[in-house]
Design a protein around this nucleic acid. Structure first.
Length: 276
DNA sequence: TAGATACCTTATAG
DNA sequence: ACTATAAGGTATC
């Protein structure tokens, strides 16, 4: 959910801490959180961990996704082709549901580097401590740990107006009545609606959690960048409201794997220009 | 039921 | 140096 990068560039290690209760299909045993670090080196994936982490790595990095099949299922479209060519091999992540929910609540009107800083601050303030390789790591807080924080605590960490959203959403999950992972069993639009019951979660944030955590590869979060892209490249898909525009662009990007197409396009237009 | 407005904070542009 | 703006929106009128 929040990976740490030690350095920028080629062989950087990315580190994260996975709680067993958040590692649904990664076959982590009960017990303390697992530290996992991973990097690409000489064209191979390497990892080190406090546990046997192959399953965790496979799950978090979506290594089972069949990229050629996903690309084959997307429409012939000059922008999509260019994006897939430019960044071929890029995968989505599969973030833990609760951590994903909280970090996307924090993402409102915020840049990535600061969102990351907030998640680290939350972990250091409220998460369990794990030692690995002579270093101290912090797991992301459990719903209970986060629900126990006060709004003032969270504001002190720089969350701003998101502080009560995070506290109240954590409380909802801690109550045991609802959980973001519950959306997994629902049809896509129903799942998006379900997630908006959490405080600070509108349609865009809900789509992010669906795409980056809950395996809804058709979800296309309508953020400011994709809206600019729609205006410039797919103007007929702008239907004036979120739900209808979402349907239209999802259809245009190939339906089933529209979220993958969106991610490639997003990356391409942001990094290489092409959108005003 | 659509449309405007306030909301925390800070890096960066001008 | 300063102020204005933008940053992968949402809740509440």
């Amino acid at each position: 959910m929040y990976a740490e990068s030690e350095q920028t560039g080629g062989d950087a290690w990315y580190e994260t801490v996975v709680r067993p209760d958040e590692a649904e299909n990664a076959r982590l045993d009960e017990g303390e959180p697992a530290v996992v670090r991973v990097r690409q080196h000489d064209g191979r994936l390497e990892w080190e961990s406090t546990v046997e982490a192959a399953g965790v790595v496979r799950s978090l990095l979506r290594l089972d996704d069949d990229l050629p099949a996903i690309r084959a299922a997307t429409p012939d479209d000059p922008l999509l082709e260019a994006a897939y060519d430019r960044y071929w091999g890029m995968r989505l992540v599969r973030d833990p549901p609760f951590g994903s929910l909280i970090s996307f609540i924090c993402s409102a009107q915020m840049r990535v580097s600061r969102i990351h800083g907030m998640q680290v601050a939350l972990a250091e303030a409220f998460g369990d401590v794990v030692e690995f390789d002579g270093q101290t790591y912090h797991a992301f807080p459990t719903p209970d740990q986060l629900a126990g924080a006060s709004e003032a605590d969270l504001r002190d960490l720089g969350l701003g107006y998101r502080a009560p959203y995070v506290q109240r959403s954590a409380e909802l999950v801690a109550s045991g009545d609802v959980h973001p992972a519950g959306a997994r069993e629902m049809a896509y639009e129903r799942a998006r609606e379900y997630l908006t019951q959490f405080v600070g979660v509108g349609e865009k944030v809900a789509d992010c959690v669906l795409l980056f955590s809950l395996d809804f590869l058709e979800a296309v979060p309508l953020d400011t960048w994709i809206r600019k892209t729609i205006a410039q490249y797919y103007p007929d898909c702008d239907r004036g409201n979120y739900a209808e525009t979402s349907r239209a662009i999802r259809e245009r990007l190939g339906g089933e794997y529209a979220g993958y197409a969106q991610t490639y396009v997003f990356h391409h237009l942001r990094n290489d220009g092409g959108v005003d």
